[in-house]
Design a protein around this nucleic acid. Structure first.
Lengths: 351, 351
DNA sequence: CTGTTAGCGCTTTCAG
DNA sequence: CTGAAAGCGCTAACAG
């Protein structure tokens, strides 16, 4: 049951006294040396009169492309995705495409997203960093089935899709080493919910599982080992997912009998909350507690003290978007390419 | 040129030794009392073997629906949209629909969004609050053309679509009255870029244009009039769009020869930055400068002092999402409904 | 229980 | 310069 008798190209053709073919040519602007100016006007007038708009589904079916790309993100309201989203929308506009956002924050949504991509709901997909529940193997399969794909992920080889690498471990290690060299010994890790599960014992776990651990968490664990500091379970807590949780987690940490002398927060948002919590506890940053965040948000520049952070040197994802659209717009298969989003430790006043 | 020979239902039918009709029935689960368990298995096996997924465009064309809804927002990275986005995604999941996000932050993007909606790129649309460049008349036209629509907007009557009203003016007025009664006289307005254009003189402008002004700005102008305070151009500045801009705008305000004794920020994000700027200028909140934000973010509870704010009492948009899906899933036209998202002034310690 | 078939609305070759 | 016609992949009558 059609919801409404939307006008079709046939209706326009009838009203303009031409064939549907001519309507199609006019509507697609491919009417140079094809349709006379006069016919053109008649068609355009008819289209306007009927408020005609070509049906996307029919067009997509016929042309075998949707003129849409999918952006797959791991959650909503994360500033780390903002610039990526903006840059992708801009590129999409330029290419005349729409953007379909898929939020994958559970296994169920991951399955659904893969199904939709498989169903060719979009002409290509950009999988952002930190999207859970989507094994690289599944993505590779999608790529193999012909879906143009760009994946922001460090543990993936560019086979049939492009990879954007943002090596976090080295930069995090640098930040953590700095804390330890500075004499900090009780360094807490304030992670995202998915980052603070039980640590797999290294000797009991296949290499792959350890590698699948969050890089931030891994950098933390490795830094403790490097400096001969044992892991204290009490100092590994969730709370990086939002500002309020970060504040509460930090407050709890500071209320411990032996509070931390440094807090490594897995997000800048949380790190800023941590600094507020430290101040509200009557302590100082970095005197009593050093604070480091992750993400390199511009906001870290306006805090007092300015926030030390680990993150991408530049927040520019136009290249990433370009990668996707090259793939989408190029008919023949492209080789898998890799681009690097270099991360650095940006030391400011909070450490 | 098809990008890749994606398997079709015909391929599956051939492999399973059945007709495409049977494949369709099996794939859609409508195979009760239709297909034998054995045939079913054969089809499913064939589909798995070929990694078959029914093409969405073809299905949409045939069924006359896309199983997608559009969310139209005014910009990226605004926390005010987060809960709405989450609630819509949840509702969409439940209805088996996808969510297409359209970002309308320019006239060009507004036109494109309308065109896409007109082309039935989605089965319905939710237009969030504060989306610029989209006159209600255009939306009404879309609704008249049969597109299920929910619009979050105060100056719209529910004709053919649903309206969600969040009356901002009264709550903002309450906050501002509070400031003036408290003896504040130099009250600054820190608005979004689109809110701080030149004020139309009331006597020179048709009622409609004045009404089209941002409600926050209008509440501010009216409050000044009510309390006999002239508008000072210097005290009306942009900067509510992001935290850094808010900090800088507030710092500039405080550096004025005659700095404000209160700042009304059009977003909580900016208000929090304002509080930081006040503190960094060696002044106190609310002693030297009172601060009020808009939005009622949870974050306002963890600042010191806690942030006074104007905003929705609850951040729950499940009802709004429900409105949309009722419309999308109901074949016959529904009456235009209105729901209220009541706003209040939440006084905390910053005023 | 299963197959045949007629489109959904559009684009695009091919004739004229 | 324009029209006729095929067909994209799928669904849903309808016929068997």
């Amino acid at each position: 049951v059609p919801r409404s008798p939307q006008p079709t190209s046939r209706d326009v053709a009838k009203l303009a006294g031409v064939s549907v073919a001519t309507v199609s040519f006019v509507m697609n602007g491919r009417d140079e040396r094809r349709v006379s100016a006069e016919t053109r006007e008649r068609v355009l007038d008819a289209a306007r009169a009927l408020a005609y708009a070509p049906n996307q589904s029919a067009r997509s079916l016929r042309r075998q492309r949707t003129e849409r790309v999918a952006l797959v993100v791991g959650s909503i309201g994360v500033p780390a995705y903002d610039q990526l989203t903006r840059d992708l929308h801009t590129a999409a506009d330029d290419a005349g495409h729409g953007v379909l956002t898929l939020v994958v924050d559970s296994a169920r949504r991951a399955d659904k997203a893969v199904e939709l991509l498989h169903q060719r709901i979009a002409d290509g997909a950009l999988v952002a960093a930190s999207v859970p529940h989507l094994p690289t193997g599944i993505l590779a399969e999608l790529a193999r089935s012909g879906l143009p794909l760009v994946v922001m992920r460090n543990d993936a080889a560019p086979e049939g899709f492009d990879v954007v690498r943002a090596p976090e471990v080295a930069a995090c290690a640098e930040a953590l080493d700095h804390l330890f060299r500075d004499g900090r010994r009780r360094v807490a890790f304030l992670g995202h919910a998915h980052e603070v599960g039980p640590v797999p014992r290294q000797d009991a776990v296949p290499e792959d599982d350890f590698a699948a651990l969050s890089e931030r968490r891994r950098a933390y664990v490795e830094a403790l080992q490097r400096h001969g500091v044992p892991v204290t379970d009490q100092l590994v807590v969730p709370g990086a997912d939002d500002r309020v949780a970060g504040y509460q987690a930090a407050s709890a940490l500071l209320a411990l009998p032996r509070p931390p002398d440094a807090i490594f927060a897995a997000s800048d948002r949380a790190a800023i909350s941590v600094m507020n919590a430290v101040r509200d506890a009557g302590l100082t940053v970095p005197g009593d507690v050093a604070v480091v965040g992750v993400g390199n948000l511009a906001e870290g520049l306006i805090t007092r003290p300015a926030l030390s952070t680990v993150g991408p040197a530049t927040q520019d994802y136009t290249q990433v978007a370009r990668l996707l659209f090259e793939r989408v717009l190029t008919p023949e298969p492209l080789p898998g390419r890799t681009i690097d989003d270099p991360w650095t430790f940006i030391r400011r006043a909070s450490t």
